[in-house]
Design a protein around this nucleic acid. Structure first.
Lengths: 348, 348
DNA sequence: AAACGGGTTTGGATCGTTCCAAAGAATGGA
DNA sequence: TCCATTCTTTGGAACGATCCAAACCCGTTT
């Protein structure tokens, strides 16, 4: 409890060994619960461990065993609730598996991503879960992490083509299918003139969602007017600003599939400013199901992605890779589910 | 670029040394930019480092130097946007200082906190930034982290008293002053019957905010009716539910200082359900300034805490502690600023 | 030629753990 | 009693870096 020795120096296996008259090796065996050691010896050693307040030095052990007990988690935008939930899912599963999470946040900057990756890699993580910054390139990432450390790509594709000796696993959202579901839902509600609102054309997820929208429109033999595709930054503010563009030409749409929830909520505000009532005069769907979506007025119809579950899944995929380093690379597409609320009512 | 050696084994200082005919020690000096080594040797070594694709093993270096290059960040609720922002501030500053962040999420569970702390401590972090789970106790935390590793407490006090040999730094929000500011603002707007809405009496931050409210009311010689103190869980849902309690007795309040933004937004919904218009029939203030506060209808008057800046500050405080392990423990109270929006209009 | 001295380089011990081959102890059977 | 066999325990060499005191080089000085 209060052995004077514990105040200053760090307690090592040697201290324990000396303290109860066995060898370092025996103490090590006790620590790892080896069946080799005698019951009485084990008890004696365990007492001593407690008495001296020993704490295991995993770094030293990892050095000797040439193993790792950490996983790096590199995110393009931790402050975004979607990624925060994702991170907590990752950490939960990694923790259960005895790994610790090395966090890195790139703030959507390719330069910071490089810096963060090379710094993290020096700590020898067993693997990396990476949600790339926009514009991040496969070759650069490979240069920073090397070919040794397994990588799991989440959420976004990397620019450039993957060098063939980097076989990385991928976990992606089913963006295309999700947007198709949203569009089909609006069509089923009776809408015919449906816009696709928000997002940037050069983001891979935006292209996929747009493709799903087009699929559904085509399948229903509905035409798509040029001014029904409005590009914005994926933020609420920019979505408010661009609202007018939907109504610059005729025929005006009666509904919009939005790139994500932030954009959808912004569009709601924009409509309000024009004196329109979203959910009554104009139907809207989002994507992500952020916490706020259930509480907006009207509550937002959107696609739930369950980021926490995705985090757990990402961790599991990477852990599986660690178990079988030689297995073929996998690509997993996580399902998204349509959550119908009041923002997507039928046209009047 | 594509040396065959780099494909399998890990490259060490020995490989580099052998590769260019110098000793391990010299290569080490080069890596650390020592002025001792000759210009030409340095160039030769640096070429070889690049050629073989060497990556520094910080764990081995830390072992030998008895240093650490990581800081543990243990949060009670990472999925909460407030803490997500905080975390990204922490990571930003730690990264600049050459440290890596070890993440741990406790999900508000004291048991998980214990497990997470003892797991993280085995990785030998240089320090710990801890936002304790509710009900977490000083003695338990000390038992898990030991007396060696400096701890910075953020946001919440620990239960129990700090053992005198654990002098931990603290970074807290100025809850009391913030609530006072909000209350004074409502009073200045002309309100006299002001409620304190939401939160649990046993949370330390709630008690502090309530105290600030009482201060301001007393200073203005305004009475406080018993039914103006409504307790709720600190969530939007529970805040919606409890709304009616404000109006169970006379005189009814005309304004409420809310425990936090979630509660304030819930109260708005509750008022709407009763046919009242928040910001017109009833004034409301929040606390936290979550992203949503600026976009609610009406926009919410609240106290900005700038969690990202708090994260940077927490990291700096801990880094300062690492520089001066013997300095006296500090308590820092971070200022909060009143952001006036439309939810806190004058009474009609 | 020896001594000097600044600039460079280096061998070997070390950090705290695990691995491994081999030694010791205990048991049982012949 | 001796040997084989099964349990236990152990010393010393790793792992990949850094530290440190000593050695080396080479041009000057005495």
């Amino acid at each position: 409890m209060d052995s004077t020795a514990s105040i200053r120096r760090k307690i090592t296996l040697n201290d324990i060994a000396a303290g109860c008259g066995v060898s370092r090796a025996t103490v090590s065996l006790v620590l790892r619960g080896s069946p080799l050691v005698n019951k009485h010896t084990r008890a004696r050693v365990e007492d001593e461990l407690r008495r001296q307040g020993y704490v295991y030095n995993r770094a030293a052990a990892n050095l000797r065993r040439r193993t790792s007990s950490s996983i790096a988690l590199v995110l393009n935008e931790l402050a975004n609730p979607f990624f925060a939930e994702f991170a907590s899912g990752v950490d939960e599963t990694l923790g259960e598996a005895g790994f610790v999470t090395l966090l890195g946040n790139t703030g959507e900057s390719v330069e910071r991503e490089q810096a963060v990756l090379s710094s993290l890699i020096e700590h020898g993580p067993g693997g990396i879960i990476l949600s790339p910054a926009e514009g991040s390139d496969a070759k650069q990432v490979l240069a920073a992490v090397g070919a040794q450390t397994p990588v799991l790509l989440f959420n976004r594709e990397l620019g450039g083509s993957l060098p063939e000796y980097a076989h990385w696993d991928r976990l992606m959202l089913d963006n295309q299918h999700g947007a198709r579901l949203a569009t089909q839902h609006l069509i089923a509600q009776g809408h015919q003139r449906i816009a696709f609102y928000g997002g940037h054309r050069d983001s891979s997820s935006c292209r996929q969602r747009y493709a799903g929208y087009v699929d559904a429109m085509n399948a229903a033999h509905l035409p798509i007017a040029a001014h029904w595709r409005v590009e914005t930054a994926p933020t609420r503010m920019d979505a408010v600003r661009a609202c007018g563009e939907l109504f610059t030409a005729t025929p005006a749409p009666t509904a919009a599939v939005c790139y994500n929830d932030a954009v959808a909520l912004g569009l709601m505000l924009g409509l309000n400013q024009r004196g329109m009532h979203p959910g009554r005069d104009f139907a809207i769907t989002g994507f992500d199901d952020v916490a706020e979506a259930a509480f907006s007025t009207p509550p937002l119809t959107t696609l739930a992605t369950d980021p926490r579950a995705r985090g757990r899944q990402a961790a599991q995929l990477l852990l599986a890779r660690l178990r079988k380093p030689q297995a073929d690379a996998t690509t997993t597409v996580a399902p998204v589910t349509l959550v119908v609320r009041e923002s997507s009512a039928a046209p009047r």
